[in-house]
Design a protein around this nucleic acid. Structure first.
Length: 590
RNA sequence: GCGCUCGUAGCUCAGUUGGAUAGAGCGUUGGUUUCCGAAGCCAAAGGCCACAGGUUCGAUUCCUGUCGAGCGCGCCA
């Protein structure tokens, strides 16, 4: 087990060291490491350890007797005021007031570096998230992936990793062609001479209309009447103005082929235009959500550079591929997958799987010591084949982690809203942001475990946005700002490090010291478990303790004023830091 | 049918890699402001941690089974 070397954890390290010395006298070969726990109840001390319970069997002694032996050997320390044996044999440690209070000085000295850990030893880690198809606006499901991924990346940075944020752009493949054709057809339809029916499986959102208008002004997209005639002869699936339901995909393929031949090089230009529009829209949308990326990685670039062909050749050379029914298959069952997978179709085109293998190989080759793919939970069945391919290529797949983000179910007027990108019936991230605000959306998204379904009641979010937890935390921050504003005494700066904190003995103050001390532990665990929601819950708890404190004691014009103001500053520092990790603003007034 | 993720208060959810009396928000009920921001605070009620076994000092947590929910199982991406 590694212990993060951070000043913030030094107190715990020190206590463990003291206990270790004592245990060494009792058991030469302990069968368990010393674990410090934080009791839920204050009466159980600041720290507690069950080490005596764990050693009891080894030593063939009752747990409480073991605890006695350990305590007898526990070195004296100014940190520990007293210790006791409780329950079945727990050893409870009570810190001295000075030890409890010291966290405040520590926080003010470190500022936003408080709870900065060295868990990752600055190893480079790649966090890939969102990676939505650039075929339309981001919807609320993507928003959750964005909020989770961005918070996770911030968290890992805080924990001492060198984080690289990446968006994988699926700019190759059929979906982009469908969007290009959809835009083209909408552009032509701006003329009354064009009556060719818009395909049911085309992209139907308003944004397509918008792009069509712009594209019409930029590119020569053909004469509406002649294109109408040409298209009608291009697809045998069109019967009058309709297409049979089971022929829609084949019909679309005909339209794509027709568009390419009718437009020639202009098709490529339209494709580039449409793609650029969508990426820019996405980039801007995310930026307004407080989510930015270091790189936007193009899937198409993997084809252009030959990386896809290369990686398939590597698999072939290693004997992991075989031909069947005209297609090339990867024997993923050799690596635990439930069935083999096609990497190259009988028509010669590579599958999405093939480019994804190349993409992940590329990630490994870039030298990251750790790879994190944030995926939608509906892709979980896809993980085994990717892992299989990477193992076949000889990569260490233990470095790859794929946290899954469950879908967001929208409820409007008590009914679940169905979402379909293709038909344009979805709620966009942008509209959600405009409705409930960036801060509320960012916090709401990470206020539950990522692998749990999120029921988002739009009416509730709209009608009662005042009740959103985000205000509760921000209010704590703003309240502190208000008190600090009123603090007029400039003779001693609260963060000078020389403030006498000994007056802080109120139970609410002791509870706050404990919570503030816990922050680095929360960061560590949240980073280890890739669970930013733990930070959100911590902040809500800390805010609650502050609000209770605020109602319990005065801050101005009392003899504890300076010490209390100093404590408030440290609470504010932690609140701001935590909100910052989650991409939520920390207002000084609201 | 197989696989993955789950099942905790009326509702929405936490639960520190097995710890002491299982927590919070919303909702319900009752209090709280001549005073630093009441977007707050205090209190009460509310639980067979889905069910049944197993592992051990100890299980909401780990294992097995049953029941129930969601998702996945394409030469789509």
């Amino acid at each position: 087990m590694t212990v993060a070397s951070s000043p913030s954890l030094s107190l715990e390290d020190h206590l463990i060291e003291l206990l270790s010395q004592a245990v060494a006298h009792v058991a030469t070969e302990p069968n368990a490491p010393i674990v410090l726990e934080r009791p839920k109840q204050a009466s159980h001390g600041d720290y507690s350890t069950p080490i005596a319970l764990q050693l009891a069997k080894l030593l063939r002694l009752p747990p409480r007797e073991v605890a006695n032996l350990i305590l007898a050997r526990l070195p004296d320390s100014p940190l520990i005021e007293r210790s006791e044996i409780a329950g079945a044999g727990f050893i409870n440690l009570f810190l001295s007031p000075a030890a409890r209070q010291s966290v405040v000085t520590e926080i003010l000295a470190l500022g936003s570096d408080y709870a900065r850990l060295n868990l990752g030893h600055q190893q480079p880690v790649l966090v890939e998230f969102v990676s939505s198809n650039p075929t339309g606006p981001l919807h609320v499901g993507h928003g959750r992936g964005a909020a989770f991924g961005a918070s996770l990346a911030n968290l890992l940075d805080k924990a001492g990793y060198t984080v690289h944020r990446e968006y994988y752009v699926n700019d190759a493949g059929r979906q982009m062609d469908i969007l290009t054709v959809s835009t083209w057809l909408r552009a032509l339809a701006l003329s009354p001479a064009f009556t060719f029916p818009f395909p049911a499986n085309g992209y139907q959102g308003d944004y397509v209309q918008s792009m069509a208008g712009d594209a019409m002004n930029l590119l020569a997209l053909g004469e509406p009447d002649s294109m109408d005639a040409a298209l009608r002869s291009a697809s045998p699936h069109l019967m009058g103005q309709t297409v049979a339901a089971d022929a829609e995909e084949a019909h679309m393929d005909c339209l794509i082929a027709a568009a390419k031949s009718l437009l020639g090089t202009t098709y490529g230009e339209l494709h580039v235009f449409v793609l650029a529009q969508q990426i820019e829209d996405c980039r801007q949308d995310l930026a307004e959500f407080g989510v930015t990326f270091d790189t936007w990685f193009s899937e198409q670039s993997l084809f252009d550079s030959g990386a896809v062909a290369q990686v398939v050749n590597r698999l072939s050379a290693a004997g992991h591929l075989y031909l069947r029914d005209g297609a090339t298959w990867f024997r993923s069952t050799d690596f635990g997958d439930e069935k083999d997978r096609v990497v190259q179709r009988d028509n010669g085109l590579y599958t999405y799987f093939a480019s994804d293998i190349a993409y992940h190989a590329n990630k490994f080759e870039r030298g990251f010591s750790r790879l994190i793919d944030v995926w939608g939970a509906d892709h979980h069945g896809y993980i085994p084949r990717v892992v299989a391919a990477l193992q076949a290529l000889g990569y260490d797949t233990a470095r790859l982690t794929v946290p899954l983000v469950q879908f967001v179910s929208l409820f409007r007027q008590g009914e679940k809203a169905q979402m379909s990108t293709r038909k344009g019936q979805f709620v966009t991230l942008r509209s959600l942001r405009h409705e409930v605000g960036r801060d509320a959306a960012r916090l709401f998204y990470v206020l539950r475990k990522s692998d749990q379904h999120l029921d988002f009641d739009l009416d509730l979010a709209l009608a009662q946005s005042q009740d959103n937890p985000v205000y509760y935390i921000q209010y704590a921050h703003a309240r502190i700002a208000r008190v600090l504003e009123r603090w007029q005494d400039d003779s001693v700066a609260p963060d000078s490090g020389h403030v006498d904190l000994s007056p802080l003995i109120h139970p609410a103050e002791v509870a706050l010291f404990k919570s503030l001390r816990t922050y680095p532990t929360v960061i560590r665990q949240a980073a280890q478990e890739l669970a930013p929601h733990q930070v959100a819950f911590y902040l809500r708890d800390l805010a609650a303790e502050f609000h209770a404190y605020y109602n319990a004691v005065p801050f101005l014009d009392c003899h504890e004023s300076l010490a209390r103001i100093t404590l408030l500053k440290s609470i504010q520092t932690v609140l701001r830091d935590g909100l910052n990790l989650l991409g939520v603003s920390a207002p000084t007034s609201m």
